[in-house]
């Protein structure tokens, strides 16, 4: 199953030149590899280790989350809304699962 990604712009439709906050939430357990289950067995690490964010094909941010990032993580950025465009988020985890999501930024 691909990893599910949610994307939101805040404000949803910014004015040209306004700051817009991009909130990316990824549905993932982010197992750090240090937790134990009820029977005391170590739960193996299973977390996202790379997130790439592009705007119209150009890489604008890259995150390398480690075991220190929470379950269902939030990755939030701020940018100047200079023009409309397509934001694309891709991610992969330690098990090689991947996720991808595009969101269109439109201006008011």
């Amino acid at each position: 199953m691909p990893i599910n990604i949610l994307v939101r712009f805040n404000p949803a439709k910014p004015k040209a030149g306004e700051d817009v906050r991009v909130q990316i939430v990824v549905q993932h357990p982010m197992e750090p590899g240090t937790r134990r289950d009820a029977s005391g067995k170590l739960i193996p690490a299973d977390h996202i280790n790379e997130v790439n964010v592009t705007m119209d094909g150009q890489l604008i941010a890259q995150v390398k989350p480690g075991p220190g990032t929470s379950a269902n993580p939030l990755f939030a950025f701020k940018m100047k809304a200079s023009k409309a465009g397509q934001l694309k988020v891709t991610c992969k985890d330690l098990n090689g699962q991947t996720g991808e999501k595009t969101a269109d930024l439109t201006l008011a």
């Binding site: 150009q58 604008i60 941010a61 890259q62 939030a76």
Partner: peptide, 16 residues
């Protein structure tokens, strides 16, 4: 906890 490389966005980042 994390490293994030920024390139063309504002110097801001939020996470948990």
């Amino acid at each position: 906890l994390f490293t994030v490389v920024l390139n063309g966005v504002l110097p801001y980042y939020a996470t948990r």
